[in-house]
Structure formats: C-alpha cells, structure tokens
C-alpha cells in the first residue's frame, strides 16, 4: 500500500509539472508510471481515480462539471479493468500450461528413448527432431544379442500432444511383444489391431518395421503405409526405392501385411525416414527425393551418423531453421 501512496504523490507532481510546462520529459515519465503500475497489477480505473484525486488537490476549485465528467470516465473504465484482470489470470494459466507441456515432453523423451545399437557388423545412424515440443515420430531399436536387430520407424498423423499420447501406446504394445516372434509382418499385424481398437477414426499411424540379421546379412521388412525408404547398392552406386504396399495402421482390423527380404552386400545402405523429410518445403517448392538422395550421396564417405546429421543440417537450412513437421532419418550400412 505504501508504494501505491508514494506513486500517488508522484503522479500528482508529474501532472502538475506537465500542466505547467507541457514538457515532453514529463510525458515520458507518465509512460514510465504506467509501466510501473502494470507491474504492480494496478487497473486502469485506479489510475483514473489517482488522476481525479490529484486534480482535486491541485485545483481545489475545480468546476463541478469536470468532477462529474471524471466520475463518468471512471465508471466507463471499469470493464477495461476487469478485462485486464482476466488477461492477467490467463497469462498465469498459460505459463502453467507451458511448463506442464514441457514436463510432458520430457517424460515422453524418457518413455520413448531408444538406444542406438553398437554392432561391429553394421554402422547405424539415427536422428529424430520434433517440429514442436512433442514428437509425433517414433523410432525404436530392438537388439536381441544374437545378431538380430529390429528397427521400427513410425509417424502418427496429427501433431502435438494427441500424437505423442498415441506414440506411447505403440511403444507399450511393442514392449509387450518382445520375446515373441519378431517377424515384421506379425508385429505390424498385431499393432494394427491395437491401434484400430484404441484410436479415434481420423487418427492413424504409418510404420515401417525391419529386421536385420547380421549373421546372414539379410534385411526382412514390412510396411504399413509408411513413406518409402531407399536402398543403396554400393556396387552399382545406385539408389532403389523400398516401396512396398501395405495399409496404414488403425483403419481396418482384418489387414495382413506382406513381408519382403533383401540380401545386403558390403557397403550397402538402408535408408528409412518419415514424411517430415520428403515433405520439406522451401517456400512453395517441395524438396523432391532426388535432392535427398543427392545430399546423402554427397556425404556418403562419412560414418552413418555423420550422414544423418549432415542431411538434417541441409534441410534445416533450406527451411530457414523452422521445421514444419517432425523429422526422422535412420541409416544402416553393412560394414564387413
């Protein structure tokens, strides 16, 4: 209360000075006064009240009509005061929500974290960057210790919190399959039933599941409507699209997924991604796949993680460092 009183005195002096000199300096001080008042949560009508009191003190013989008009103005400002209070409350709530979302985002990070496997037979690079706080992309490695490496890459349609919640469900389902058969077609079939039962009709998930057998160097995979990946043939120095049919998860409960197998030669690469990579836009122009492959090739002398990082940097620059969609890229390369 003390500070407010002090300010009252202050306001009166400022007003008096301005009326006398009409000096800009006083106007500037008035601006400072209003900023200070806002920090103290003082409402507009309180300021008018201060103004009336100051006037009365400076001009004890103030005409009655000015006094009345001031009271009139005071009443008119009351709604503004209420709106201002409301704004303050909303601002506090918004800050609260923001911090809650960042707690959730951290939790998601922990829940969905996956460890990039360290294998001597294959070199693995992986990167996933969310466009907003919560990531709607998901990738997961499952290493059985007997030379088999499972890789899942998924994209939930929709962004933000709902997509993230959906991802957590996928992660738990996948965990519950561990120890069971790891055929990609079986995994996608089971996940499809889980998603179909549990998510809203307009939500769906695309997923690519691959299994790398590092004893025989074969790659077995199935796709549920996921963005096609690429296969790089070292001997021919050529890319091939891994475009296999399969319906997205969560649309029809009866779907079965076909499984495909590829023999992987030394130096060959498997490139898996989400549509955040192919849907990159530069202004109105879309980045086409040739450009992505060109960038990958340009850095192919680097280790897999190096290539992945460079591709991300390239597209981040193209989009002025503003990702429109979550970005996930995984590269596997046979070493020996």
């Amino acid at each position: 209360m003390n500070t407010l009183k002090l300010d009252l005195e202050n306001y009166k002096e400022l007003l008096q000075e301005y009326i006398k000199t009409e000096d800009e300096q006083a106007l500037y001080q008035a601006e400072q006064f209003s900023k200070h008042s806002m920090q103290q949560n003082i409402s507009p009508e309180e300021i008018i009240n201060v103004h009336i009191q100051s006037l009365q003190e400076i001009y004890p013989d103030m005409p009655r009509y000015i006094q009345s008009s001031m009271n009139f103005l005071l009443e008119t400002m009351i709604s503004y005061g209420l709106a201002y209070q409301e704004y303050q409350t909303l601002r506090e709530k918004q800050l609260e929500l923001k911090s809650e979302i960042s707690v959730a985002a951290n939790m998601q990070k922990t829940l969905l974290s996956t460890v990039k496997p360290d294998l001597s037979e294959i070199d693995v690079g992986a990167l996933s960057v969310p466009a907003k706080q919560m990531n709607g992309d998901y990738h997961h490695f499952v290493h059985d210790g007997k030379g088999s490496l499972g890789i899942a890459v998924a994209d939930v349609i929709g962004k933000g919190v709902p997509a993230a919640l959906c991802m957590s469900m996928i992660k738990y389902s996948m965990d519950s399959f561990s120890g069971m058969r790891t055929d990609p077609s079986v995994i996608l079939g089971s996940l499809n039933r889980v998603v179909e039962r549990n998510v809203d009709a307009s939500m769906f998930i695309t997923m690519f599941y691959g299994l790398y057998n590092s004893n025989e160097h074969t790659f077995t995979f199935s796709s549920a409507g996921h963005e096609p990946g690429y296969y790089y043939h070292k001997d021919r120095d050529e890319f091939e699209e891994i475009d296999v049919p399969g319906l997205v998860l969560g649309v029809s409960p009866e779907v079965t997924y076909k499984q495909y197998e590829k023999r992987v030669e030394k130096g060959d690469m498997i490139i898996l991604l989400t549509d955040g990579v192919t849907e990159c836009r530069q202004g109105d122009r879309f980045i086409d796949q040739e450009e992505i492959l060109h960038v990958i090739k340009q850095y192919s002398h680097l280790p897999a993680q190096g290539i992945v990082d460079q591709v991300y940097k390239h597209f981040e620059r193209l989009q002025d460092f503003q990702l429109r969609d979550d970005f996930t890229l995984i590269i596997l390369r046979r070493n020996v």
């Binding site: 809203d200 009709a201 769906f204 997205v248 649309v251």
Partner: peptide, 15 residues
Amino acid sequence: MDSTGLGVFISALKS
C-alpha cells in the same frame, strides 16, 4: 494435401 487430410477421408470411409 497433408496427412491430416487423409485422416478426414479415413473417418469418412468408416462412416
């Protein structure tokens, strides 16, 4: 069209 649009047609199909 982006994938959110696909979601609309999937729910329309179900309907």
